Measured scan of single mutants.
Amino acid sequence: MQIFVKTLTGKTITLEVEPSDTIENVKAKIQDKEGIPPDQQRLIFAGKQLEDGRTLSDYNIQKDSTLHLVLR
């Protein structure tokens, strides 16, 4: 499925993911596309910070959802 990741600069990254993918996995995909190390990434969805060990389906993230990427 496709999800979107919006950065603070207003750029939107499109990712191909599975509901069973972990947040860690998603961060690795963002690193592949953007070169941002996962340890600098914070992903936010519906006002919640997403934890590495959980999956997209744990957070009820569905296709065409938009996550927000904050760098630390």
Results as ranks from 00 to 15, higher is better:
Thr55Gln: 13
Pro19Glu: 15
Pro19Leu: 08
Glu18Arg: 14
Thr14Gly: 05
Pro38Gln: 14
Ile13Gly: 02
Arg42His: 13
Lys29Arg: 13
His68Glu: 12
Lys29Ser: 09
Thr14His: 13
Leu69Asp: 01
Leu50Ser: 01
Pro19Val: 11
Asp21Trp: 03
Glu34Trp: 07
Pro37Ala: 04
Ile30Gln: 00
Pro19Gln: 14
Gly35His: 12
Leu71Gln: 03
Gly35Val: 03
Val5Asn: 00
Met1Phe: 04
Lys63Val: 14
Thr9Pro: 05
Pro19Thr: 13
Lys48Gly: 06
Arg42Gln: 13
Asp52Ala: 09
Asn60Thr: 14
Gln49Gly: 15
Arg54Ala: 15
Asp39Gln: 11
Val5Met: 03
Phe45Val: 12
Val26Tyr: 00
Leu71Gly: 11
Glu16Trp: 09
Glu16Met: 10
Ser57Lys: 15
Ile61Pro: 01
Arg42Trp: 03
Thr22Glu: 04
Lys48Leu: 03
Arg54Asn: 04
Asp52Met: 04
Val26Pro: 00
Pro19Asn: 08
Ala46Trp: 09
Glu51Trp: 12
Leu69Thr: 01
Glu51Thr: 05
Asp21Arg: 06
Ser20Gly: 03
Lys63Asn: 08
Ile61Lys: 00
Arg72Pro: 13
Leu8Gly: 15
Leu56Ala: 14
Pro37Asp: 11
Thr55Asn: 11
Leu43Gly: 00
Thr14Leu: 05
Arg54Trp: 13
Leu71Glu: 12
Asp58Ile: 13
Pro38Ile: 08
Pro38Asp: 12
Gln41Asp: 01
Arg72His: 07
Gly47Thr: 13
Asp39Glu: 14
Leu8His: 04
Leu8Gln: 03
Asp64Leu: 08
Leu15His: 01
Asn25Pro: 02
Ala46Asp: 03
Asn25Gly: 09
Asp32Asn: 13
Asp21Ser: 03
Gly47Pro: 01
Thr55Met: 15
Gln31Asn: 11
Val5Ser: 01
Leu71Met: 05
Leu43Trp: 01
Leu50Pro: 01
Leu71Asp: 07
Arg42Phe: 06
Gly35Met: 05
Val5Pro: 00
Pro37Ile: 08
Asp32Thr: 09
Ser65Asn: 06
Val26His: 00
Lys48Ala: 09
Lys48Phe: 04
Lys27Asp: 00
Asn60Arg: 13
Asn60Glu: 15
Lys29Phe: 11
Glu24Ser: 10
Leu43Tyr: 07
Lys48Asp: 06
Asn60Trp: 10
Gln40Asp: 06
Ser65Arg: 09
Lys29Asp: 08
Thr14Phe: 09
Lys11Asn: 05
Asp52Glu: 05
Glu18Ala: 07
Leu43His: 01
Leu43Thr: 01
Arg54Ile: 05
Val26Ile: 11
Leu56Val: 07
His68Pro: 01
Arg72Lys: 05
Asn25Val: 12
Thr66Ala: 15
Asp21Phe: 05
Gly10Glu: 03
Thr12Asp: 04
Ser20Asn: 09
Thr55Pro: 10
Asp52Lys: 13
Tyr59Phe: 08
Thr66Val: 04
Thr9Ser: 06
Val26Met: 05
Lys48Arg: 13
Pro37Arg: 06
Gly53Trp: 10
Gln49Val: 05
Ile3Asn: 00
Arg72Thr: 11
Ala28Trp: 04
Gln62Lys: 10
Ile44Arg: 10
